[in-house]
Amino acid sequence: MIANAFDYTAPQSLDEALTLIGNGAKPLSGGMSLIPMMKLRLASPEHLVDLGRLKELSYIREQDGELHIGAAITYYELESSTLLLGKCPLIAETATHIGDIQVRNMGTLGGSVAHADPAADYPATLQALEAKIVLRSATGARTLSTKDFFLDTFTTALEPGEIVAEIIVPIEPGLTGTSYQKFRQPASGFAMVGIAARIRQQAGTLSLIRIGVTGLSGSSYRATNVEAALEGKQPTEENIRAASALVGDGVDASADLHASADYRQHLATIYTAKAIRAALSRSA
């Protein structure tokens, strides 16, 4: 399988990359989604600009009480970052669920976010973390909430000429427990359903419940009805089950040859409860 012909630039700086992208070139990051699509000729960009090796997009740093992650950081760098494992373990844990060793060596957080595959893992995690997504173009920068960034299947708020430059996630205090739980499609490893849970527990009462969902429908979302049902409650099995059953309410669940809509809804309920239990077991 050979891609259609294209021109390729490995820019020396982010400014050079943004100028080229502003003129219509397409960004290439790890290529773990784009290159297979190009080989199948589902995508035929005329000009690729390689962001994958730009030092300016490759960092993980703590700044003003938050963690800033450059878009070109790979999944392997996320899963092996002691800074993330210590201060935002959910973002490191999620990487271990993706693909395989080889894919995690190449694939990037920014690439996954910009691609917005409805079965990708990170959108659920970023929803639960209420991450901020920094977009840049040759003419400026803007910061969006995860909620405002992911619009629909393979559709984001990115405008032509913009790239995902940085992801900002919170530092989690000790009282917060997090977990990502996923039912894998056995052949591809993609999420049939993936649930990220982030919960604070103090004196037997739940607060700050955040549930991110991927795979169930065309786009990731926060299950605010599950969150509301648990807010201020005690973490009993009964309460967890009752709240988890609300995860797919009003959601147009996807159906394909792997799973019917009803089965996906069932999986979402089961995996929401699993993610909540696992998050609680990790909260102090």
Binding site: M32, I35, K39, D100, Q102, N105
Partner: peptide, 27 residues
């Protein structure tokens, strides 16, 4: 497989195992 699933094309690039069917030589 040529679809980045089978891993038969795995080589090391700067010390990291990668699937060489899913990368352009220019990269």
């Amino acid at each position: 497989c040529e679809t980045s699933l089978c891993g038969a094309c795995t080589v090391e690039l700067n010390g990291k195992a990668i699937k060489s069917c899913s990368m352009f030589a220019v990269q």
